[in-house]
Every structure is written in structure tokens, then in C-alpha cells.
Write a protein that binds this DNA or RNA. Structure first.
Length: 280
RNA sequence: CUGCGAAGCACA
């Protein structure tokens, strides 16, 4: 089942769950028994494609056939519901796990906390944080990243410092996501001057800016119509062997169009295609 | 004993 599951998981990540199911059919024909991992992989595939109802059907079926849904299966369903912005249903799922005496972990909580933040319910998200902590489930770097991003999205950036302190005190360390979330918040807020300081402290911790960090900064300059600055970052990233992607080019092209520098925009478009990137 | 067979975070 192992090797088949790997294949199924590949199809699921390509959003080709239907092909994943045909692999399952092949398994059955060959007399190879799927296991809980195989079926959970398919549940996740359906969730990733946004077909949470189908995922739930499979979830019920697998339970009926004696494949007990576990932490991972519930995790996939919760994630599916969260990606469809259904925090209430996701929380109901969490309660169902409790009733089934399954052990909740930081992934289950973080998934829902992220969803609440993204729909603007940061206070509910913070409540869930207290709940998980009171159950002895530790917030990890991802949980903090989610909250920091959530606070920024809700214009509550002033509370981020407190969160970072709490993070360090708990010996949970920031990673590239953490810093990039902060860089992005500053950029969206037009505070590109403060980004250099953030990137310095990032590098001091041995963390290099990555493509998302650079893209955020480029877009920050684009927002302010500072195309010269944007171009500088573009060159800097290339110098650091960080290859621009479609997002990088889209930002820059948008920026040049905004300031009516159409030639530059078009030449970037060509450059992008020449680099083997497909316009979307 | 360890290792990527399954679930959570950032950019246009």
C-alpha cells in the first residue's frame, strides 16, 4: 500500500484526485489492500480540490468499512473546511474529535486559528489559542506566524511585538515565514523604510530572505510607485541566486504599467517568457 | 534507531 499511497499523494497534490482514485481501483484489482493512510490521502486530495462534501462522504465510508479516521484524517477534513472559510464546521469537527477521544494537536488548532484570522475573527482565534494552551498543547512557530499575520491583516500590528516577546520567552523561534509576514505587513502599510531593519535581524539569525520576502518588498515599492527601488530589489534577488517567478514579474509589470512605462513593462514580459515562465 | 506513504503558516 505504501508505494501506491505515494503515487496517490502525488496526484492529489497535482489536484488530480480522480487519478488518485484510479490508482485505488488498480490496487483493488491487484488485490492490494489500501490502509488508513491511503484513504486519508484521498480524503485530503478531495479537500485540497475544495470538494469537502465528497471528502466527508469518503470519511464516513472508510469508518463504516473499519478504517478508523485518525488525527490525520480529521486534520485533512478540518483543513478542507477552513480553506472553504467554514470555521464553525471546522470547530464542530474539533469537538467531534474530543468526543471520540482523539488527541488534538497544534495542527488541528492552528488550521482553525488561521481560518478565523483570515475571515477577520482574530479575537476568536486568540480564544482558541488560550484553549489549546490550557489543554497543554504548545503553540509552535506556525501558530505564531498565523497570529502575527492575522493581527497585521486586522490592523492590530501594535500587538505583534508582544507576541514576538512571548514567542522568544517560550523558546519558539521565528523562521523565514515569520520575518516575511512582518516584511509584508510593513510593505502593505507603505513602511518600506522599516523593512531593512527587519531583514537585518532576519539575517542576523541566520535566516536568508527568500523569494516571497523579495516579492513582498518589490510589491511594497510598486505600491508607492518607486520603480527604481523595486528594480534594485529585483537585481539584488538575482544576485543572490534567487530566481524571480511569475509573481515577481507580475508585480513589476503592474508597477511599470501604473507609472505608464509601458516599454519597460513589455520588456519584462518578454524577459519572463524567455526565462521559461508561463504568463498566467 | 533514523529517514519524504497522509493533515496547518507568508507574496502579484
Amino acid at each position: 500500500a505504501h508505494i501506491y499511497t505515494i503515487l496517490i499523494n502525488c496526484f492529489c497534490h497535482l489536484k488530480q484526485t480522480a487519478l488518485g482514485f484510479s490508482v485505488l481501483a488498480t490496487m483493488l484489482k491487484l488485490g492490494e489492500e489500501p490502509d488508513t493512510v491511503t484513504l486519508t490521502t484521498l480524503v485530503n486530495g478531495l479537500c485540497v480540490e475544495g470538494k469537502v462534501e465528497d471528502a466527508h462522504k469518503l470519511f464516513v465510508e472508510m469508518a463504516a468499512m473499519g478504517y478508523q479516521p485518525n488525527n490525520f484524517t480529521y486534520g485533512a477534513i478540518i483543513n478542507g473546511l477552513c480553506k472553504r472559510a467554514k470555521p464553525d464546521a471546522a470547530i464542530a469537527c474539533l469537538r467531534e474529535m474530543e468526543a471520540a477521544c482523539l488527541e488534538l494537536n497544534s495542527i488541528h488548532y492552528s488550521t482553525i486559528i488561521d481560518c478565523l484570522c483570515k475571515v477577520g475573527l482574530v479575537n476568536d482565534a486568540l480564544k482558541l489559542c488560550s484553549e489549546m494552551t490550557s489543554k497543554g498543547i504548545k503553540m509552535d512557530t506556525i501558530t505564531y506566524n498565523i497570529l502575527i499575520d492575522g493581527l497585521c491583516l486586522s490592523g492590530r500590528e501594535r500587538e505583534v511585538g508582544f507576541l514576538l516577546e512571548q514567542m522568544m520567552r517560550s523558546e519558539i523561534y521565528p523562521n523565514q515565514y515569520t520575518f516575511t509576514v512582518i516584511v509584508n505587513a510593513y510593505c502593505k502599510d507603505g513602511r518600506t523604510e522599516e523593512v531593512e531593519r527587519v531583514i537585518n535581524s532576519m539575517v542576523q539569525r541566520g535566516l536568508e530572505p527568500n523569494i516571497v520576502t523579495y516579492n513582498s518588498l518589490i510589491d511594497g515599492y510598486v505600491l508607492k510607485n518607486q520603480m527604481g527601488k523595486a528594480q534594485e530589489v529585483f537585481h539584488l534577488m538575482i544576485e543572490k541566486s534567487c530566481s524571480p517567478n511569475v509573481i515577481t514579474y507580475s508585480s513589476l509589470i503592474h508597477g511599470y504599467c501604473k507609472v505608464k512605462m509601458i516599454k519597460e513593462a513589455l520588456s519584462l514580459f518578454k524577459e519572463m517568457v524567455n526565462a521559461g515562465l508561463r504568463p498566467n
